[in-house]
Design a protein around this nucleic acid. Sequence first.
DNA 1: TCGTTTCGCTACGGGAGCGTAGCGATAGGA
DNA 2: TCCTATCGCTACGCTCCCGTAGCGAAACGA
Lengths: 210, 210
Amino acid sequence: MSTATEHEDPRRARSRASVLEAAIAILRESGQPGLTIEAVAARSRVAKTTIYRHFADRDELHIAALQAAAPEIRMPRTDDVVHDVVGFCVALNDKLQHTEFGSVLATAIDGAERSESLAEILAGVGAERRRALDERLRLAQQAGALAADLDVGMLNSQLVGPLFFRRFISRQATSSAFVAEHVQMVLSPRLQEATIATAAGGGERSRSTR
Amino acid sequence: MSTATEHEDPRRARSRASVLEAAIAILRESGQPGLTIEAVAARSRVAKTTIYRHFADRDELHIAALQAAAPEIRMPRTDDVVHDVVGFCVALNDKLQHTEFGSVLATAIDGAERSESLAEILAGVGAERRRALDERLRLAQQAGALAADLDVGMLNSQLVGPLFFRRFISRQATSSAFVAEHVQMVLSPRLQEATIATAAGGGERSRSTR
DNA sequence: TCGTTTCGCTACGGGAGCGTAGCGATAGGA
DNA sequence: TCCTATCGCTACGCTCCCGTAGCGAAACGA
């Protein structure tokens, strides 16, 4: 959100970065109950008073940490919907399983049950990540690859839902191969003969070995 | 696990029940950080010392509360797979959204990241609920309604994953109608002409569209 | 009825974390 | 250069929670 034009005292920026880094590490290692101002102060080597100068309370810090930990997830852009969505979901799954993003997200789930602000961020962080997915799916609709009357929101949940479920609830290992197969299984029955409908989209170039 | 044959002092049973009830209420209202022995003692009107006589520490109490809050979810048994799975998923979604089970589950997600025992229970509680689903899907396979080479585990994740995702991550309202449509959307492409395919492997039943 | 189990109560020492105040030191920017 | 924003540090009072000890009372079961 913050534009690069903002003049921020480099000292503030440094403190803030140190604090957030420490907060994320703590959330990963000790979870939500471990996120205390004192612990963050000790770990970040930033004085407790300084932390209070940046964040009003624990919730605010938690939210900032969550935002800071949210990674970018690239959406490939070829003319093959399946290929693109597979790439996106594999990347998402990877972030969930092998980065601090997964752990930090877990700490926010409980908090979101009671904190309105955390809930917004939690949904928002996810929404932002999935917006690219939404757009890609709609694009496919316009290109005729997907039926126009398809509920994109529902499809979105069907695509990413299982990834979150397996990461946080059933706690099953989920390989990239599994994700790829899953996405294909979900999308395949929705595909239409795109080659005909596109008209201006130029034939299929994709494939890319599933 | 506990057979009815066990002779348990009714006083112990009563204390335990009161404590668990209070713990669940606290988890719902204040989340994992609110679950302190003292809070449970105050709310349940059971002496703190007595709670320690039942549960070694907070984690043990948390686990017991999670198990106590896990509801039964009925799997209808008709010869229509889609109908049955819709019924199951609608019931599951309802428990997730309108009972304390949802809240308590949320408190366990973060804890499971670090507590081996909580993780087991979390996955176990879910697994037990989904076992009926697994069985029903396999039954459909045997009846020829679903392809025999279908990955039941994957299908399971695809069916229930979105429900959990929408409840805990994206926090979208999810009506029974939505769930029904979702299940139909997922299952329909997998259905086969049961009457024909049963024969004993019949010619091409494959599908797979890769 | 009588022994056993379970309970509630009070009290305690100790630790962790909160959030604030007041201070001098120093790194920025103009 | 000089002013200001920001920092680190120490200290504080306060609250919450932990986990245990010791006691008498009451409920249970045989």
